[in-house]
Amino acid sequence: MEKVKDWNYKVVEKIGQGVFGEVYKCLNLETGKKVAIKMINIQNEPEGVPSYLIAGVSLLKELEHDNIVRLLDVLTTGRYVYLVFEYLDLDLGSFIRKHTITSIRPHIKTILSQILVGLAYYHSHNILHGDLQPSNVLIDLKSKKVKLADFGLTTSFGVPHIEYSYKEVGSPYKAPESRIRSSVYSTPHDVWAVGCIFAEMVSGKPLFPCGKKDHLSLIVSLFGKPTKETWPGANYISDLLHSHPQCEPADLAEQLLGLGLEPPGVELLSRMISLNPTTRITARNALNHPYFKDSHSSLSSPHYEAFGFP
């Protein structure tokens, strides 16, 4: 890392390599607090600081919420933009990998509800997360807080965001509509990802594992062959769907019940991964779902009330 004026941080270790640059765990020498610093190389940008960064940082500076990783500072040099975030030790991905599903089970409601509170906050500010997955859901074990991180791909959805091609590549947590030509992608996209994360916490493995089969085949085998009625997007890829054999939907509900998920949880999950984005439950409505009714966890907690739910 190069020297920056007013640089108060000491590098502890490199913790990641993202699409946009490297991430370092650092120590704030003034406060003694740990921070995560994202370095974004802008040296080779002929147009200067990229617009996604300008819009992204402006938005992030507005976002102040218990369930969202805070952007503490932004520093620039000739070559880099440094984003200084608060640091958390654990992400949900490693949490799931390191624990058995029975030991995760008692925490699912707390984690899920905090993800939804954070997401509802994002959405109430017209911001999409766009890339939710277990690795950017961070957990602070001491305070039992869950925080959403990685605005990397976050886009404000004032302008409808249109995808121009069918994409098979990309995160396995991406909603089906985001892979389809000319479909508008908005807040339901994030809820789908939360549904996938929910299922992963219950079963201990990804709902749509990447690798063996392509995403579309996985969807067909889970939901049965979609029709125009169950999924308006099916219209656009009828030629792709044509090659898929007709099949019975898998009984996901039964599997999850077998894994100890209560029936209201199964119902909530089915509404989160509804193929049709217009009928998918919103983050805010999901929080009022009966699944959370008997939980003492986050519904009565102060940050839930602070967010101003009626």
Binding site: V49, I54, S58, K61, V74, T76
Partner: peptide, 9 residues
């Protein structure tokens, strides 16, 4: 950007 503290919104 530095003087405006990255706040453009």
């Amino acid at each position: 950007l530095k003087k405006l503290k990255f706040r453009l919104n």
